[in-house]
């Protein structure tokens, strides 16, 4: 790992920590949420950006974390941290099962199969409404929103917990792709056939990547439930799968910083657009089309192409 890379990413982590003290209240709250959602995007990026698995079903992993955490708290009174771990484990387990099946396909079929599994998961949330509270969702009990005696609903605690989680995910993903395992993933994305010929068990590595990706996405979902206190089926809908794709593409697929940059950019774009037009999803649509046309590498990807050749 080059010193320059490390400085850059540690720098971002440090800046985000400093922002805790100087941001005005609104942006402080927004940034906490963005960091949590950016973890979701980081998870998605491991599958899509680094391994080349275009999934349209990642909302089910986010949802697994959200519901795993929330339901453990609601029905069994599990405290925040164990519940967070349960949520993350749920996402990893789900990703393992889905991966076993879906990784038999590739390309367009993989995309559609993940979309459908995700749809089944969404419908299951509605169908088992007696347990999951269906489309209404539920409010996570305060007892499960307390960490080391601190209430996670407190603005300051929330920000710092989100910061810790985000920093872990960001530096973790940087570390991961610098490992031999990470390099094989990139090789899979670039040319799976060649990786196979070189003797790598491509299927197992893809499965491992999907499980990591699912677990990170679920960690984001579990953190969302713990920090923001609401669990609902909309988060497991198709739209949230598309959001992950959008954020990663916008920021730059296959870059470590891309998911954060994309999430940040998209949030403020929509936040500003709601002031201008009711149809703010129009902006998302235009952004998607514009990106594929003019900046297929995303913001960070373009920076890398132009200025910083070996940016991870």
């Amino acid at each position: 790992m080059s010193r320059r890379d490390l400085t850059l990413h540690l720098g971002l982590v440090a800046v985000l920590f400093l922002l805790h003290f100087i941001l005005p209240a609104y942006h402080h709250g927004v940034l906490a949420r963005i960091m949590v959602m950016a973890v979701y995007a980081i998870g998605y990026n491991i599958a899509f950006g680094y391994t080349g698995l275009l999934s349209l079903g990642h909302a089910m992993f986010f949802g697994a974390g959200l519901y795993g955490m929330g339901l453990a708290g609601l029905h069994y009174g599990v405290p925040a941290f164990p519940a967070f771990l349960i949520g993350t484990a749920c996402g990893a387990a789900l990703a393992f099962v889905v991966g076993l099946l879906a990784l038999r396909t590739e390309g367009v079929s993989f995309m559609i199969v993940t979309l459908m599994f995700s749809q089944v998961a969404y419908l299951a949330l509605l169908y088992f409404g007696a347990f999951t509270h269906g489309d209404d969702g539920f409010v996570v009990p305060d007892a499960s929103r307390t960490l080391m005696g601190l209430s996670l609903s407190d603005e300051g605690t929330r920000y710092l917990v989100a910061w810790v989680l985000f920093s872990g995910a960001l530096l973790g993903s940087l570390w991961l792709i610098r490992q031999p395992f990470g390099r094989v993933l990139i090789a899979l994305r670039e040319n799976e056939e060649r990786a196979r010929l070189l003797g790598y068990d491509t299927k197992r590595r893809k499965l491992a990547a999907l499980v990591i990706s699912g677990a990170v996405s679920a960690a984001s979902g579990a953190a969302y439930a713990a920090l923001f206190g609401y669990v609902g089926a909309t988060f497991a809908g198709v739209q949230y799968s598309i959001f992950a794709l959008l954020w990663v593409l916008l920021g730059g697929a296959g870059t470590v910083l891309g998911p954060f940059v994309g999430t940040l950019f998209m949030f403020y774009l929509i936040d500003l657009a709601t002031g201008l037009t009711d149809a703010y999803m129009l902006i998302a649509g235009v952004a998607l089309v514009g990106l594929t046309l003019f900046a297929p590498q995303g913001i960070v990807g373009e920076l890398r192409r132009r200025f910083w050749k070996d940016l991870p």
Binding site: L54, G285, L288, L293
Partner: peptide, 19 residues
């Protein structure tokens, strides 16, 4: 890339219709 672009197109058409 066409999948992503048509997702974008989906939102554009839907939202323009709404407007």
């Amino acid at each position: 890339r066409t999948i992503v672009a048509t997702i974008g197109l989906l939102y554009i058409l839907q939202q323009l219709t709404l407007m």
